[in-house]
Design a protein around this nucleic acid. Sequence first.
DNA 1: AGGTTGCATCAACGAACGTCAATACAGGCC
DNA 2: GGCCTGTATTGACGTTCGTTGATGCAACCT
Lengths: 124, 124
Amino acid sequence: MSKQELEVVGQDAGCCPGLSAAPLGEDQAADLAKVFKALGDPVRLRLMSMIASRGQGGEVCVCELTPAFDLSQPTISHHLKLLRQAGLIDCERRGTWVYYWVLPGVLDRLAAFLSTTQPAGVTA
Amino acid sequence: MSKQELEVVGQDAGCCPGLSAAPLGEDQAADLAKVFKALGDPVRLRLMSMIASRGQGGEVCVCELTPAFDLSQPTISHHLKLLRQAGLIDCERRGTWVYYWVLPGVLDRLAAFLSTTQPAGVTA
DNA sequence: AGGTTGCATCAACGAACGTCAATACAGGCC
DNA sequence: GGCCTGTATTGACGTTCGTTGATGCAACCT
């Protein structure tokens, strides 16, 4: 169930120097843009927020997410798929229900990428 | 020249509790989504990066930005307009040339919004 | 087995987006 | 004034996106 996801926000090595550290290369920009594009929709932002509110290791059942919107069930499923493909969340089926959670560290790495204050110690 | 811009990322009061603090309301989500959507394009991300690399108070002339892309001049101008409408950058005409800069604090507020570590002191 | 519920996928539609050539506007220079 | 350069705006095009109803698949329950 957890297949093709982006591996963008650098996992360990800190991905990229930061938005304001140096001009982004084409490839980095293309990858990062996919993540921001995934967050660039009100529905997906709310979905992310609802899932992330459960905290580290927390999960949310789709059956809790869908009724929170005035949208059809396929639409919510589609948005969740996009968030998953962007490498922001993952899911697992347990019995009848499917649970989603925020991939650990992604949000903080994104935050670090946007922040203009240097991570300290990278002054070479 | 600097007209209609979004006033989203909260300026002073800290905009919103943070993505993972509490489920986002519809209005907040709609406003924030516009900002992320603006960043959700490779060209705009590179533009932001090129401008932000100049640091606090730094500026970049459009004449330096346009030739960095394999795109027509109107296209770059259009992307710059979107970034401006998202409240991320602003510009000023000086003589023949137009200079762009990153609005102060926006990136750091965005970063704080994404970060999962509480800003401290907001534990009510 | 059949029926039911939860979620994902498919196919199709209109709306929004990214791009360009053409044009308009602003300022400097002659 | 007229010309040239730098930037923004307009109008049009093809592509992508958000949404839906219909359908498919997986797991539970008799």
